[in-house]
Write a protein that binds this DNA or RNA. Structure first.
Lengths: 213, 213
DNA sequence: ACATACATACCGACTGATTGGTATTTATTT
DNA sequence: AAATAAATACCAATCAGTCGGTATGTATGT
């Protein structure tokens, strides 16, 4: 049923163009500072088309989070790090991959749903929940590799695969904040390197191989 | 020169009350969604008083970041973890302290300048720089303890005290985002625990005591 | 094949409410 | 009295959202 718009028909239907505009504009200006007409201008669409496709600005925000979850999960599913045989190499490969894509403009490599969640966690619960689902869903894709790496090495730990998976996301989100504050993506890369070192230490410091203290 | 306002004179002068209002309101709604009259209402002050004290909303944002830097640095300076003799215990004590104050409402323990930096990094450079100064200044207070802990243990590392100090801030900022997205502060505490474990591993895995791989 | 009918996608001028900011007046301090 | 702080009244601009209308695709009947 979607149909190309009159303006710039080659860019596709209005809904997708608005979701792509949301992804790009909200990452640079934030959700609240992004106006509906900012989005319409960026998408090359009228405000009539906006409110035809989304019943409110909040609905657009939630849909943009869902769209982000879909597109990024496809992106990571086809990433090369899954090819490693050793599950630990897959986990480390994921971290290296996250470091490798910290490149170009800040608004291109930072996380839409992290940005939105921080901003609207209290004001738009619908958007917040969609952001949480995106983050938690992505973290869940790491859990099996972490669990397999643990059992392959017989690692007994006082932390769970889920908590380590979430921790990787926390480090990445925090790294993005530091990069935005300083305007320097190197500080983000430094944090990702610390995260990699942490995972290495976790799996090499198994009590059976090297006792502590 | 400041003078108590007519409304609620016992609460002090208008400027301080507006800065406190900014600290509280912006942490719950974000900077862009916070209106000048939100701040005036919360401070019990008229908009005339607002623009007498701050030449614009942006100036208020930057002043709020400075105020945050002042008050938090005083807060951490008087915290108990500085008493430890071993510098590593001071670093770990800092992390434990950060975990201990993750309590109560989300808007009470999350970071004003992290929130603002993420939101306005491109739109209000003045605010962003004030936020960066606050974060970097706070991280710098950890550097000497980290450096002393390294030299006390003769630790040769491929990371610097500055990068580890910044990494602690990245983890905390990211933990706040996860807590906001999920509405659960436990996930933030989990990340802080991972950070603590990382620092422990860094200082017990010195090559001289236990070789890697 | 062609006309009619209907639903959907999009358009764009418009609105009521709210925004950040200003100008003027009043109160307080020194 | 001079200067500063706060209160009040106000404004132009912008906001999210509405609404009547048009363009397009599809189903049906002949």
């Amino acid at each position: 049923m979607p149909r190309p718009t009159k303006q710039d028909p080659e860019r596709g239907d209005a809904r997708t163009r608005l979701l792509e505009a949301a992804r790009d504009v909200i990452r640079t200006k934030g959700f609240a500072a992004t106006t509906v007409s900012d989005l319409c201008d960026s998408a090359g669409v009228t405000s009539g088309a906006f409110f035809h496709n989304f019943k409110s600005k909040e609905a657009l925000g939630a849909a943009a989070a869902d769209y982000w979850a879909e597109t990024t999960s496809e992106f990571f599913r086809s990433a090369p790090y899954h090819a490693h045989k050793d599950p630990l190499d897959r986990v480390l490969g994921y971290i290296d991959f996250r470091g490798a894509i910290i490149d170009g403009d800040l608004a291109e490599f930072t996380c839409l749903v992290g940005t939105m969640a921080q901003e609207v966690y209290r004001t738009y619960p619908g958007i917040r929940d969609a952001c949480a689902a995106s983050i938690l869903g992505h973290a869940a894709t790491l859990e099996t590799d972490i669990a397999e790496a643990m059992s392959a090495r017989n690692l007994q730990a006082d932390w769970t695969p889920a908590s380590l998976a979430l921790h990787t996301q926390a480090v990445l989100q925090g790294a993005f904040i530091l990069a935005k504050a300083t305007g320097d993506r190197e500080v983000a890369l430094d944090s990702v390197n610390h995260l990699r070192r942490y995972v290495e230490l976790l799996f090499q410091a198994a009590p059976s191989r090297c006792e502590a203290r």
